[in-house]
Amino acid sequence: MANKVLVLGEVRDGVLRNVSFEAIAAAKQIADGAEVVGVLLGDSVTSLASELIAYGADRVVTVEHPHLKSYTSDGFSQAFLAVYEEEKPEAIVFGHTSLGKDLSPKIASKLQSGLISDVTEIEGSGEGALFIRPIYSGKAFEKVKIKDGIVFVTIRPNNIAPLEKDASRTGEVATLAVDIQNLRTIIKEVVRKASTGVDLSEAKVVVAGGRGVKSAEGFEPLQQLADVLGGAVGASRGACDADYCDYSLQIGQTGKVVTPDLYIACGISGAIQHLAGMSNSKVIVAINKDPEANIFKVADYGIVGDLFEVVPMLVEEFKALKVNS
């Protein structure tokens, strides 16, 4: 059993990301009764500590420094390693996000440890915990464990359920002073391209378009459907290659792998590379003019028809459903 598990809480635009609450749940399972300690790094993050505690952290350590305002691997690794040295945990959990993917290998290298990335499920608890992760973009899964040394994992958003929030929970919040220096990277600017606040990899609903969307404008009804459902828009490689949308929206073996509750594929034929990126979604809906399209083989529900007819009707029906419920 791990003596203690550290969980990095990830803050974006002043709020904690959902994946951090999921990471606490994962840490609890690994800890098997031992202490779970949240870690917050930033220039003004201490006020968020109580939320980590409400989601299950036993206590929280924060490091605040002007150099931690924006994420850099140099700044965040110095801060996190300082907390590590103080706490000496036997396990660490990060979210498998842009930040987590960038930071975790550096920390693992500094600790000369193994690192299990992109975990979607944890089997068992404590020392016997086994970690399940997709390989070949979800065409297969592997079950792995750390042979020796620290148990360090990153968990994929949307796969491990967070614990129920309990605002009455209390815990110690401590601040560690760390001297952050020698940042080799300067962030000049962040250009927001994602059209809504919903991140594709964390979205509960994804509405994706393929070549059948036919143009950049063709994505508008898809965006409307995503907005009604509080979801995000994605795309197949075909749509990206045809310049209908940005590559950052691409879902598939190259591109993002997503596992939302609901995936609505519009005008996507379903090439094996695309299926790799979405076939582990909980419920899949396919809308395609071609009844032979491969996407219907993985879909739970299918409508054979023109997406430009079907999608606007869906928008209206979902709006009506919202009003009635």
């Binding site: 440890s113 193994g114 690192l115 299990i116 086994l130 390989i135 979800g138 065409k139 297969a140 899964f141 592997e142 079950k143 792995v144 464990k145 750390i146 042979k147 020796d148 040394g149 076939s279 582990n280 899949i284 396919a286 009844p291 219907f296 083989k297 993985v298 879909a299 739970d300 529900y301 299918g302 409508i303 054979v304």
Partner: peptide, 21 residues
């Protein structure tokens, strides 16, 4: 020497055929 050990490799469960409305 590796730090991570693979215990098992398997395919995702086959999805039952969906319903075309």
């Amino acid at each position: 020497e590796v730090k991570v050990e693979t215990v098992d490799v398997y395919l995702p469960p086959q999805k039952a055929a969906g319903r075309v409305l």
